[in-house]
Design a binder for these strands. Structure first.
Lengths: 215, 215
DNA sequence: GTATCCATTACCAAACTTGGTAGTATCCCT
DNA sequence: AGGGATACTACCAAGTTTGGTAATGGATAC
């Protein structure tokens, strides 16, 4: 008994058997658990201490994505590999958001599953090509645009930054040790440069154009 | 001469030769061009009509990421596969933003390069495990948070939405055909529910919690 | 049916924001 | 040395926002 310890959650009994056989033959993996539902994930993991969890999505009771969240919150070192028939954006992204470390479709070659398990165990991110494409494309669309430069001076950025954090003119003056009127002077310049005419517009623009790391 | 038509941009002559040999032996690919710089990308592609472009990043003259942008803007059907030594987040994400369809490190196995070329040609997104991990993790961090529910009423959401767009109380009153004082009443409730005490904070919170599709 | 939430309006007084104009001082560039 | 950008200060007047408290009618919930 050695190698990477794996457990699987899938309500399809014969699939669990196939995986068990596959892992058994390989020699590099040990299947230390197999369950048809996620009703008792926490205990299942506490008892078996796996390195990698193979997780289906559509199961009776608690669904696999919820289970991933639970696992990642309670056992941060355990890697989760999704193994499912679903390839719709919503499920894929939800699984990643929940903390899955890889996403393989059930129609993949058995050999690829073994490879994916070691990869996810070694900190990689195995994905079937179609999934990788989805992720890459979505990722592409989400990357920040070339951010416009409004030529704000250092001081102006500082003031705007505080404004975004909810500070009033008076508070900003206090924070920066300058007078209220100086803050006003900066604000006037900022409004001019951003082409806005109120605090709310300035804040909205600053956040939307990602002028600051607000989150 | 048949198979997938490939051209390569890389200032390392011997690497170009190796790739040429590799592709030649495989039978499934045809190298129809090899260039040490991207000074004339557009013509290079117009003349060779490749299916896939293999692109280095660090080259004299125009850098590979800029070149990807040019290619994707002018020849949207041509797939670009990055083949470079760089694995820092900045370059990886920049390449993806520029439109690269795959990203392979130069230390990968030759066999994997061939596989990656067909994959990118077939609409996949080949990445070396480390790159896939970077992308997945960044992607994970960028996916929208579970959005909190502040139990805003319809009307309150409407008012807050306008506020985020830069409207003043008075303007909101006009837009919604209600009195100024009614707007004020809604605002008071909103502040209470959002736990804020000024327009700027409300706007910042609304945008950051993605309560509205602002962008 | 009575309690609770929602949308609406109203008024007061205090505090805050905005646009205008105007001046001083420093630093960098040519 | 002069031109230009930046940082700072100041005052006025008009307009806006905020926190109170209070009241009405409608809808929904138990």
């Amino acid at each position: 008994m050695n190698g990477i310890k794996v457990i699987i959650f899938d309500d399809n009994d014969s699939l669990r058997d196939s995986v068990a056989m596959l892992l058994g033959e390989s020699g590099d993996f040990t299947l230390v658990g197999g369950y048809a539902d996620c009703l008792d994930v926490r205990n299942n993991i506490r008892n078996t201490k796996p390195d990698v969890v193979i997780m289906d999505i559509d199961m009776p009771g608690i669904n696999g994505i919820e289970a991933v969240r639970v696992i990642r919150n309670n056992f941060p070192t355990v890697q989760v590999l999704m193994l499912t028939v679903f390839d719709d954006d919503e499920k894929v992204f939800a699984a990643i958001k929940a903390g899955a470390g890889g996403y393989i479709l059930k129609n993949a070659e058995p050999q690829n599953l073994l490879h994916a398990i070691s990869e996810v165990y070694n900190g990689g991110a195995p994905m079937t090509p179609g999934i990788a494409k989805k992720v890459l494309h979505q990722f592409h669309d989400m990357l920040p645009e070339e951010k416009k430069d409004y030529h704000l001076s250092m001081r102006e950025k500082e003031v705007l930054g505080l404004l975004v954090e909810g500070y009033s003119y008076k508070m900003i003056a206090g924070k920066l040790n300058i007078t209220y009127d100086t803050v006003r002077a900066h604000m006037k310049k900022i409004y001019e440069k951003l082409h806005v005419a109120s605090m709310t517009e300035a804040v909205a623009k600053a956040i939307n154009q990602k002028l600051f790391p607000t989150k």
